[in-house]
Design a protein around this nucleic acid. Structure first.
Length: 211
DNA sequence: GACACGATGGGCT
DNA sequence: GCCCATCGTGTCT
C-alpha cells in the first residue's frame, strides 16, 4: 500500500491544488527563521516557466540562521552569502557538489541574515514536465531532495536573487501538514545537533525518513 | 592563481 | 550501504 496514494496528484482529504494559486504574502517570511521554516510546510512552490507550469507542496525544510549558525553560509558575509541579508522572500540559489543547485527562501527583516532551505516537495502539477527534466518516472524520486527539487522545478543558478513573492517562481498558500516532526539537519558537520529540520510526518516524499 | 571543500545524488555492491 | 564525480566559492599564497 505504501506510496499508493502518493500516486495520485491529489492529496488525501483535500480539494487538491487550487485552480489559481494564492501567493504567499511577504509578511509570512519576514519573521524569525525558526518560525518561518515549519510554517512553509504545506505551502506550494510554483514555477511558471516557458516550458510549462510545475508546482509542488513543500514537505521538508531546514532553517539556516545568520552569523551565529556555523552551518549557515551566512556564518561569513561574502559576495555569495550577501543575499541572505537582503529582502525577505528573495531566492538564494547556490551550486553544490558540482552537480546541482539548492533553493533557499531568504527570511527575517532586511538587514538580518536567515534562510530556509527547501529540501523536498510532493509533486502536484506538471508531473510529466518534472519527469522529463529529471529523466525519472517514479513520483517519489522527482523532488525528494534539494537537488532533485530544483531539477524537477526547472530552477537554475539564474534564479539566484529573484523574488519568490511576486515573480514567476513563487510561493503560494497551501494545506498545512497534520503533524510536523523536527530532526537535526542533514549533511552538515558544524552545529550538526541543532534540530532545525522540519518535515511533514509520514510524507513519502522526504529526502530521508524520520528516525 | 592554486587549491580544498562541500546544506548531494546516482549507480553499483 | 559505499563510493565518487564535479565545479563554484572562499581562502590562502
Amino acid at each position: 500500500m505504501r506510496g499508493r496514494r502518493a500516486a495520485s496528484a491529489r492529496p488525501a482529504g483535500a480539494a487538491g491544488p487550487p485552480a489559481v494559486f494564492c501567493r504567499l504574502p511577504r509578511s509570512r517570511v519576514a519573521k524569525h527563521t525558526l518560525a518561518v521554516a515549519p510554517a512553509l510546510l504545506g505551502c506550494y512552490l510554483v514555477h511558471e516557466s516557458p516550458e510549462g507550469r510545475t508546482a509542488g507542496r513543500i514537505v521538508e525544510v531546514e532553517a539556516y540562521l545568520g552569523p551565529r549558525d556555523p552551518a549557515s553560509h551566512a556564518y561569513r558575509r561574502t559576495p555569495r552569502s550577501e543575499v541572505m541579508w537582503g529582502r525577505p522572500g528573495t531566492a538564494y540559489v547556490y551550486f553544490s557538489y558540482g552537480t546541482h543547485v539548492c533553493l533557499n527562501v531568504v527570511t527575517e527583516r532586511e538587514g538580518v541574515a536567515g534562510a530556509v532551505l527547501l529540501r523536498a516537495l510532493e509533486p502536484i502539477l506538471g508531473l510529466e514536465l518534472m519527469r522529463a527534466r529529471r529523466r525519472v518516472r517514479e513520483l517519489r524520486l522527482l523532488a525528494s531532495g534539494p537537488g532533485r527539487l530544483t531539477q524537477a522545478m526547472g530552477i537554475t543558478l539564474g534564479h539566484n536573487r529573484v523574488d519568490l513573492i511576486e515573480g514567476s517562481l513563487y510561493l503560494a498558500q497551501g494545506r498545512p501538514p497534520a503533524a510536523v516532526a523536527r530532526t537535526p539537519r542533514i549533511g552538515i558537520t558544524a552545529a550538526a545537533e541543532a534540530p532545525w529540520r522540519f518535515v511533514e510526518r509520514g510524507s513519502p516524499f522526504l529526502s530521508r525518513a524520520v528516525p
